[in-house]
């Protein structure tokens, strides 16, 4: 479905965020991307839909190499890639419905979107998705009137509104409390299973990743250092990804009230 070939990114400042990342994502597969802050997780996700321009390498979505596309062709392909953001990134002063409908922007003409005259099919689908994420009665509220968990549900509905072939998810739970985090992750995995949708989920929280992901990719300093099943995340592997730290408190406790502390102190100091 998605194939990354030797993807690299060096910023103008000279910082290398990604070096030679290659990855193969199957249909319906949920991939958790873990690694310390500054390892290049965000950059990797943004290089896929070229919100960040990769310096070299190939990004094959189906049989299209996204890196080689012109701006307008790229916009056309971006419709196939839904994206969900860390701090929801809803347009806060628009209503929930407008935020969901904005997922159709790549499909409709400027005037249609300006006058908010979406096709009946799109509106029906937007209502359906809002119902699916449990926010039907909030459709006409302004986005900034919702709670964090509700906003992230709107973010998910917006991404699904695109009819995507792939989901890119950037730290979906970083601004949420532990319970809401689990609810959001569960919703995400359910939705992906329903639609056989592959997703790359950038995630800080290792236990959460182990609980919900089918495959884990560990990134360190822009390189893939681990790629395998969640139960392959041994202490040695975690140390390789994050640097030395005591990993014992890591558990799969469902009622965990505090987010388990997986702060990669050493790595952060080194970074």
């Amino acid at each position: 479905m998605l194939k990354l070939n030797g993807l690299s990114k060096t910023y103008k400042t000279g910082d290398t965020a990604l070096s030679d990342v290659s990855l193969d994502v199957q249909k319906g597969q949920l991939i958790g991307l873990i690694g310390p802050s500054g390892a290049g997780k965000s950059t990797l996700i943004r290089c896929i839909n070229r919100l960040v321009e990769p310096s070299s390498g190939e990004v094959w979505l189906g049989d299209v190499d996204l890196v080689k596309l012109s701006r307008s062709e790229l916009r056309h392909q971006r419709r196939r890639i839904g994206m969900i953001f860390q701090e929801y990134a809803l347009v806060e002063r628009l209503t929930v419905m407008e935020n969901v409908l904005s997922g159709r922007l790549g499909y409709v003409s400027f005037w249609r979107s300006w006058l908010r005259r979406y096709e009946p099919r799109d509106i029906q689908r937007a209502y359906e998705l809002l119902d699916r994420v449990g926010l039907l009665q909030h459709a006409d509220k302004r986005a900034d009137a919702l709670s964090g968990g509700q906003r992230q549900r709107v973010g998910i509905a917006r991404a699904l509104m695109q009819d995507p072939d792939l989901l890119l998810v950037d730290e979906p739970t970083a601004s949420l409390d532990p319970k809401t985090s689990r609810q959001i992750m569960r919703l995400l995995t359910e939705i992906c299973a329903e639609r056989d949708l592959p997703a790359i989920v950038n995630i800080h929280d290792v236990p959460l990743a182990q609980a919900f992901m089918q495959r884990i990719v560990g990134l360190r300093a822009g390189r893939v250092v681990f790629d395998g099943a969640p139960d392959g995340l041994s202490e040695a592997v975690l140390t390789e990804i994050y640097g030395a730290e005591d990993w014992n408190p890591v558990g799969n406790d469902d009622d965990a009230d505090d987010t388990p502390v997986v702060v990669p102190k050493v790595a952060e100091v080194l970074a």
Partner: peptide, 14 residues
């Protein structure tokens, strides 16, 4: 399944 409304108008804000 398709009992959802097919029209939507932006509610007036001010």
């Amino acid at each position: 399944m398709s009992s959802y409304p097919t029209t939507w108008r932006r509610p007036p804000q001010i």
